[in-house]
């Protein structure tokens, strides 16, 4: 799990082949519910998939750049390109079903 910022975002895209970015904020209830799920997925898929957390409160430029208008939004980047976008919280199994094809 890595913490992303506006200033470090592009570098993270370059250095991680498969990066799942969680656009979240402290005041977002559904974000809190998926946080432990993402942590689990990060551990289970260590070495294949990196999880990046971007707090939209402090990093509005990146949120705006990817047109995030609702959180949680998850965007999966493969070799720096967004390949999957998921808006809204969901269960671990539902999340894995969506991500699996890209692993």
């Amino acid at each position: 799990m890595i913490v992303l910022r506006d200033t470090s975002f592009d570098e993270a895209l370059l250095t991680n082949d498969l990066l799942l970015v969680d656009f979240w904020a402290e005041w977002c209830g559904p974000c809190k519910m998926i946080a432990p799920i993402l942590e689990e997925i990060g551990k289970e898929k260590a070495g294949i998939l990196e999880i990046g957390k971007l707090d939209v409160d402090d990093n509005m430029n990146t949120a705006r750049r990817f047109e995030v208008m609702s959180i949680p939004t998850l965007i999966l980047f493969k070799k720096g390109e967004p390949v999957l976008r998921l808006v809204g919280a969901r269960s671990k199994s539902a999340l894995m079903r969506e991500i699996e094809t890209y692993l």
């Binding site: 904020a25 005041w27 977002c28 209830g29 559904p30 974000c31 939209v56 409160d57 949120a63 047109e67 995030v68 208008m69 609702s70 959180i71 949680p72 939004t73 808006v87 809204g88």
Partner: peptide, 16 residues
């Protein structure tokens, strides 16, 4: 939903 239509003001208000 997530592109202007929202079901959760507390989640999405910030973006407006």
């Amino acid at each position: 939903i997530g592109h202007g239509v929202s079901t959760c003001a507390t989640c999405d208000g910030f973006f407006f």
